[in-house]
């Protein structure tokens, strides 16, 4: 806070001279920055690259729905299709447009378009595939974001900073999986039961799955993995001893639209 006018002008002038537009000047001028001592919680989980294996063989439809429900509950994801109050009921077309999905189920030919053979195994035909953000190692959404509101952490998580998002929806056009949702309406009235461990959202920002970064920081597995009763395995792809690597060694896995070069980090055992 201790900055008089002379100091302000000096820093502003110097930073202009040095061509420090934008961020540089903002940083120098930000008064009273707390050099906060913020440390990871002792139990927080670390990895070089997080990855998720979904064992569809073990995942029945009911469990899949439970996983999605668990995710949406702990992230205060609104439900526009079945709102908590009848007065908020929307017509189905509109509700579909507003829908916010972090984790949901889809048929094989929707989750893996173009990959279905003419006579798909009956079991697979009726399977509910859990789909979510793939946390691509080469994410197009991050490439297109004009403010770095969506960015890639060193541990591979494609993170969403909803404080910074300007709502241009370039990332939604960029994502080849339809994994991003936009807040077309105030979501709060449509949140069934407010979960205090996570914020809700305001209108006008994009959101998506973040591999439960807030739970990892507290040493907890992602909510869906916890609810999956062993059908999902989450861990470090770079760690040879991790369960993820063990599964990848043991089973043949497929990924969604891997030919696009996005290098998705969600693997499916079918």
């Amino acid at each position: 806070m201790g900055m008089d006018r002379r100091e302000f002008i000096r820093i502003a002038g110097l930073s202009t001279l040095l061509g420090l537009g934008g961020k540089g000047a903002f940083e120098l001028l930000a008064p009273g920055r707390v050099e906060a001592e913020i440390i990871p919680a002792p139990r927080s989980m670390k990895a070089k690259r997080w990855a998720l294996v979904i064992n569809q063989k073990k995942l029945d439809d009911a469990t899949a729905q439970k996983c999605a429900a668990a995710c949406h509950r702990v992230h205060n994801v609104p439900d526009f299709i079945n709102p908590p109050d009848d007065k908020l009921k929307l017509n189905p077309g509109v509700a579909n447009r507003y829908e916010i999905k972090w984790l949901w189920t889809a048929h094989f030919h929707n989750a893996f378009p173009g990959d279905a053979p003419p006579h798909l195994a009956e079991k697979v035909e009726h399977m509910s595939f859990l789909v979510l953000c793939n946390h691509c190692a080469n994410p197009p959404c991050v490439r297109v974001c004009p403010t770095k509101a969506t960015f890639q952490r060193e541990d591979g998580i494609v993170m969403m900073d909803m404080h910074r998002c300007i709502g241009c929806r370039f990332c939604m056009a960029g994502c080849p999986y339809g994994s991003r949702s936009f807040n077309w309406m105030d979501p709060r009235p449509y949140v069934k039961e407010q979960y205090p461990g996570y914020p809700t959202r305001e209108i006008g920002v994009v959101e998506k799955c973040t591999f439960c970064d807030e739970r990892l920081a507290q040493g907890l597995q992602p909510a869906c993995v916890e609810a999956s009763r062993g059908a999902m395995v989450f861990g470090d792809l770079e760690d040879e001893k991790s369960q993820v690597r063990e599964y990848l060694r043991k089973y043949f896995t497929i990924r969604r639209k891997a030919h696009l070069g996005t290098n998705p980090q969600v693997y499916y055992i079918v």
């Binding site: 709502g167 077309w184 209108i203």
Partner: peptide, 13 residues
């Protein structure tokens, strides 16, 4: 109210 007053949605964004 939000951009919901338009015809756009999660698919045609």
């Amino acid at each position: 109210v939000g951009l919901g007053i338009t015809g756009m949605g999660r698919d045609v964004s």
